[in-house]
Amino acid sequence: MPSAAVLTLDGVHKSFGPVQALAGISLSASPGSILALLGPNGAGKSTTIALAVGLLRPDAGTVRAFGADPVAQAAATSPRTGVMLQDGGLPMGSRPMEVLRHLSRLYPRTRDIDEFAERLGITAFAGRTVRRLSGGERQRVALAAALVGEPELVFLDEPTAGMDPQARLAVWEVVEELRARGTAIVLTTHTIDDAERLADDVVIVDHGTVIARGTPGALVGAEIHGEPVRRLRLELAQRPEPVLQEALEALAARHGHELRISGATVTLTGKVSTTAVHELTGAVIQHGSEVTALALEQRTLEDVFLDLTGRSLR
């Protein structure tokens, strides 16, 4: 049975002048789970976090963290909350360990900073000021800064942006460990890897509203007659002639697939069977063209977003 939510947003609206950033967002986060807010830049993810941590007041709707209003009752919520903001929030003239030690003095509980810094690889660049760190290094310090007070609710805004693969793995490990310890984690990202790898639940946001929610598996495996949706991608030697295009469209319609042709790339989405693969490749060859590459893949959250909005996440 899932634990009671430590964060709830219910029907939250927020506008900045004439621009409506959020139009009725509702979501919740529970202990020991990772909620990913997925959406393109400007979708309203960062505004959602700013409201959840008490940096902004909603125009309408309610925000509660640990049952309290994060603006009016910040003294009750902030000691239990950790925040990694997208812009880092690190003083440029200070060294990473100075920042972490200082922040640890602001929280009632604190973790072993030296051990944590070692684990995130921060000690390797501890002698430099934040100003002289790369984007990925700053992200690691910002992550440590969010977690230094042993929070029960953590907000991570684009936590792996600018990181190399090794650093990203280290972050994933830390986040998974937090979940195992019962921390509720809210992750905003437009990096599909993060959401697919980490999230227990995904909320897809666009234009300030929730357009889909569910587990990553349920979202990408949206079924057709109980079968998972797959995607067949064919790379042709050249852009298909109109005759071939018509043949491919007829085949796709017959099998109930969705067809996209972009240049020499043909993508078929749906319950793609081996029969469909044979017929499609046969049609290509029959019309004098050639298949240079073929891949049969599961759909990704990127595809889900594309299907829902007709736009890419990036």
Binding site: A50, V53, G54, L55, A75, S78, P79, T81, V83, L85, Q86, D87, G88, G89, L90, P91, M92, L103, L106, Y107, P108, A145, G149
Partner: peptide, 11 residues
């Protein structure tokens, strides 16, 4: 650089 915002979210 977001330092004010971050500190505002701390105790």
């Amino acid at each position: 650089y977001g330092v004010l915002r971050h500190l505002a979210t701390t105790p």
